[in-house]
């Protein structure tokens, strides 16, 4: 299993895209020609950045269950991945952090079959260790003088935040609307922000550097993660097996350990 730095992904996509120009339907033949072992194959999985830890774990399990198969991941923001797949990047599997981005590919007829929801995630309030501002509820975030950081409404965690605000009738006045949930988390970890709205899994993944304060209103915005085989996948069979592992007990255990809930 190899992990690529995000920035390299477009280049790989470009190279693979060029290599595939000769005959995109003969991916299996290409693989056979490139490698002496007939079973050797590479499964390319495009997954939302928030899935990095769990998918790497599931990926190694998949590789040990399927000798000769290597799983190659490209982790990035869901919308970036959608854009890459629309531009012809050769993904076999796409796992999105929200249904909206998956629906874009479905609408473009780039998904084989129906997407399957495999996990959910909800928002929580991330605070510095020890919760110095004593925050216990969403309403506490409206106090004067608090530096609250959220995601921008244009990105998935931001739209979830907007939904929570609308459902609860609480209006936050953030000092910053960040580009990604990681940016929000880092602002809290750095101590610049007193609190930030992030996903439960983010707090879990951040270890001791932040604490999570759960709040009831988070049920207004349950984020659902769908997964699907990409149309014209060169490894369609392996893709289906990988999806089965993610939705099966192995995948669900790993996801639960990381803080994801079942759909």
């Amino acid at each position: 299993m190899r992990r690529r730095v995000l920035a390299v992904a477009p280049v790989i996509a470009l190279v693979l895209g060029l290599a595939g120009c000769g005959g995109s339907d003969q991916g299996g033949d290409d693989d056979a020609a490139a490698s002496p072992t007939p079973e050797a194959a590479t499964l390319t999985v495009f997954a939302a950045a928030s899935l990095m830890g769990v998918f790497e774990e599931i990926g190694s399990q998949f590789e040990s269950d399927h000798p000769g198969v290597s799983v190659e991941f490209s982790f990035a923001g869901s919308s970036d991945l959608v854009a890459q797949i629309q531009q012809g990047a050769p993904a076999d599997v796409f796992a999105s952090a929200d249904t909206k981005n998956m629906d874009k590919l479905v609408a473009d007829d780039l998904i084989d079959g129906d997407p399957v929801d495999f996990a959910t995630n909800t928002l929580t309030i991330a605070v510095p260790p020890g919760n110095p501002a004593g925050i216990t509820s969403l309403a506490d975030l409206t106090q004067d003088g608090l530096n609250v950081v959220v995601c921008a409404p244009q990105v998935p965690c931001g739209s979830a935040t907007t939904t929570v605000e609308e459902g609860s009738g609480i209006t936050l006045t953030p000092v910053s609307e960040e580009q990604s949930v990681t940016d929000v988390l880092n602002k809290v970890i750095a101590g610049e922000a007193d609190a930030g709205l992030v996903y439960v899994t983010d707090v879990k993944g951040a270890g001791d550097t932040v604490e999570g304060v759960p709040f009831d209103e988070s049920s207004n915005a349950v984020n659902t993660y769908p997964i699907a085989t990409v149309s014209g996948a060169s490894q369609a069979d392996l893709a289906k097996q990988f999806i089965a592992m993610v939705t099966g007990s192995v995948g669900q255990d790993v996801l639960a350990a990381a803080g994801f809930a079942r759909p």
């Binding site: 921008a152 244009q154 910053s176 609307e177 960040e178």
Partner: peptide
């Protein structure tokens, strides 16, 4: 984006706006 954050009219300069718009409105 690392130091100042991103808030319309306060810290969201043109390059940050471009990066954000990319999410929804290429």
């Amino acid at each position: 984006i690392t130091f100042a954050g991103s808030l319309q009219g306060v810290t969201r300069t043109l390059p940050l706006e471009i990066y954000l718009q990319r999410e929804t409105d290429p």
